[in-house]
Each structure stands twice: as C-alpha cells, then as structure tokens.
Design a protein around this nucleic acid. Structure first.
Lengths: 232, 232
DNA sequence: CCGCCAGAATAACGTTGTTATTGATGGATC
DNA sequence: GATCCATCAATAACAACGTTATTCTGGCGG
C-alpha cells in the first residue's frame, strides 16, 4: 500500500496484465512519460532556483509547488516526498559539478589540468553554495542520499579519475590506481573548501592559500621518484 | 524590544538602578546565576543526549524541554531560541573535540604526535556524529555559528597548532607559521573524514587508507629539506 | 500581611511535511 | 457514442515544529 512514486529506472513494475511480455514502454506510456519528464524538469528547475537564490532553507514543498503553479500533491506523486526531491537535487548538483569539471580544458598538460580541476571544484562550491549544502552538508534535515545517488556522485568524479590516469600515462604521476589517487585529491580540495565555507578562513586570500597548499601537497605522494619518503 | 536572553559574557547590561556603581554581580544574582548555570548545564546535557543518541533531527525544543521536565519557555529565556541552543552545542562540540585532542600524549615524539592527533580527530568525528553535524554540516537548519563561536572553534585547534610548533622546535618540521600549517593539516583530515561520513568511502579500510594517505601528504610540504619541490 | 514582579506553565499562532478526501479528465468497453 | 473506471491533481485537513502571548505562581520589599 506504499505510495509508489515514479522512479527513473523502474519501468512499469505494476503492469496491468501479468502474463504480458511487455516489450518496453507503450507509445502511450512514452508520451505520458514525456509529459511527466517535462513536468519533472519544471519542478526541478523551480527547486533549483529556490536553492540557488535563497538557500536550502527556502526549499519548501509549498514554495516549489507555488513556483510552478501547481499543488504539492504533484511533488509527492513525482518524487514521493521531500527526500525524493532532495535526492533528485543531489544528483542534479553532482551533474552540475561534473559539467563544470568537464569544461576544464587540458591544454597546458596533465599536471596543470589537475590544478585547474581543483580550482574548478572550489569555484563550483563557492558559486553554488545551495547545491553544496545539499550534496555535502545535510542541509535538508531528514535526507540522506540513496545508494544509487551515491554512485552517481562518485561517477561525477570520473573526470578527475581520468585526468589522473592521463597524468600517469604521461609519466607525470607514478603508475597506480587512478581512482585511489583521485579520491585523495578529492578529499583534499573538499576539506579546504568545506572549512572555507564553514567560515573558518574568513580571509579569502588565506582560504586560497590553504587550498592551494593542500591541493599541491596531496599529489606529492604520487609523483615519480618519491624523494626520501618518510614514515610518520 | 528584543527578548534579552542571558549571554555568558554579558554581566547585567540592564541594571535596575541606573546610577548604581554595580560592583560585580549581587550575591543574589550570583546565587540565581548559580541556579541558572546548573539549569543551563542540565538543558545542554539533555540536548547533548538527544544529539548523540538520535541525531540532530531529534533536537526539538519540546523534546529537550521534556527531557529535563520543564517547559519550552525556559529554553527561550536561557538561549533565546533554537539558534542559541545550537550555538551552545556548537561550542560544546568543539570543547569535546579539544578535550579529545588534549588526551593524546606526545610520548613517541612530535611527528608521531601529529599522526595521533589526526587519528583522534577522525575518531572524534566518527564517535560523535551528531556533534559533527552541528559543527561542520549545518544539521540545524537556520543555524550559523556566531563570530564568537567561530573563534572558540578555532581555539580548539590550538592544541594542534602547539603540536606543530613543537615539531618545528624539534626540527621535525621546517620553521614557519604553526597556525598556517595546522590549518592545512586540519583541512586535510577534515576532508577525508567528511567524505567518509558522507558515505563516499563505504569500506572502512578504504576510508582509513585515504585518510592516512592524505594526512601523511599534507605535512610533506613542511618537512625540512624540501626535495625538488615542483610548481603545479 | 499585602502588593509586586521575574520567571515558568499553558495554550495558542503560523509554518512545515504529509495525507485523506474530493473532484475532474481521459481512455476502455459495450 | 454513452458509460464506467482508473489516474492524477486540487483542496483541506492533521501532526509536529519553532515561537510567542497570556496566565499563573512563588518569593521578595514595604
């Protein structure tokens, strides 16, 4: 008796005819889904606008519904609740991050590209604080990303992983697991940005310095010819 | 006509007799304050229990008041609102962190002490997730720490700064600004812990590996005799 | 002993997420 | 083509939340 809201990768789990082979979605379903997808996009755009302009605190079911001119019932049939809406925004936020990272060109070589990706990460977080709050701080009280959304989030780091792989292929980094290196770099830039956004580096110059210092340090263990690596 | 709630370092800003010299708090006020301070401690303990056992979502004015057996009015006269309560918990959380960091002994030398402090930071975050949510994620929707509380938070890192200073004095680290080095180390361990708590490192072994790798890397730029430091 | 007042209990208000109820709309069936 | 039915949306309600206006109480000065 659970209110079955539409899930993206869940095609017709309750088909009306049990013995039907069900060869994909009916054209009717396809048309209907098109409309639903447009509606979904409109709802997500409205929520995104609220999130970017007024922050996560303004993300209210009534306000989102009012922004698109419908009732809150639509939000519940579409997303199943505020957690579902937050989950969609979570995915959307990592999608935005991925696009920003992909927009970084790798002209000046693999090493400079890693630095540029790091700065793109910081710029993204500073520019879209609302999304950052949904993605990393739990700005929506009861929300925690579903495992699938967590996987989507990790996939957004694929561009960083590939850049690390390219750097390894170019001999700029020592051969190894690109994913592991990318995760360490991610943690480094994320930590610096997180403390900056939390207000612990009020001076932007200081924040940038800490960011660059840490980002530069994070790749040191992966450079070739490790110079007198010490145990701690 | 703002509701003047009690602030810790604000002794009697509205003295009843304007022409009075007011040589400190009256004994009556002192006794009353003693009672108020005990009440404040009880309220904070109740809030802390809710926070640690059920998470920030259970931090409700009514629940906190119910846990100590009083009405919500007491919370408003004491803290001025939920933001004030969150601010007190914020300070309390950094106080707890400071105590945990001070509990690490520096027997095996300054360098091992830095590693032990890093692990203590991680252990603290993993053990008291509720406080971590209040301190770094904004788990309480409308709350943002006051400048004074931010300063208290930074002061909790003093133990790390002093450990860095000791390492510099011992020649383990290159001479420099201990505070800057401590902030970089803080950002490193915080980033790894933040991603772990967000669920991006589901395997605890992987999480520990990323943490150690990044923590070790973060001090590399500050070691003496920088080996072929490269620009990025 | 009376009057007074700081502070707490009670109950209310507005807002939030959520849902039960009702109403409309559009294809399926005879 | 008319009727039935299923699905979705609008309305309004409910519970819980933060907050506050109102009422009550308990201890002090006169």
């Amino acid at each position: 008796m659970e209110p079955h809201h539409k899930e993206p990768g869940d095609p017709a789990q309750d088909d009306p005819v049990p013995g039907d082979p069900a060869p994909g979605p009916t054209p009717y379903e396809r048309a209907q889904r098109k409309g639903q997808e447009a509606l979904r996009r409109a709802l997500l755009d409205a929520a995104s606008g609220l999130l970017l302009e007024e922050g996560p605190g303004a993300l209210t079911m009534r306000r989102v519904a009012g922004a698109v001119g419908c009732s809150t019932t639509v939000l519940y049939t579409m997303f199943g609740g505020k957690e579902g809406l937050a989950d969609a925004l979570y995915r959307d936020g990592f999608e935005r991050l991925r696009r920003r990272l992909e927009a970084v060109d790798g002209d000046p070589g693999p090493q400079a590209r890693l630095g540029a990706l790091a700065h793109a990460y910081r710029d993204s977080a500073l520019a879209e604080r609302g999304y950052y709050g949904v993605m990393f701080q739990q700005a929506i009280p009861r929300f925690q990303p579903s495992p699938g959304s967590l996987a989507v989030a990790g996939a957004s780091l694929e561009v960083l992983t590939q850049a690390v792989g390219a750097a390894m292929a170019a001999g700029v980094l020592r051969p190894g697991d690109p994913r592991a290196v990318a995760e360490v770099l991610w943690a480094a830039v994320h930590g610096a940005v997180s403390l900056e956004l939390a207000g612990h580096f009020p001076d932007p110059g200081v924040a940038l310095d800490r960011f660059q210092t840490l980002a530069s340090a994070a790749i040191l263990p992966f450079l070739p010819e490790p110079p007198t690596q010490r145990r701690r």
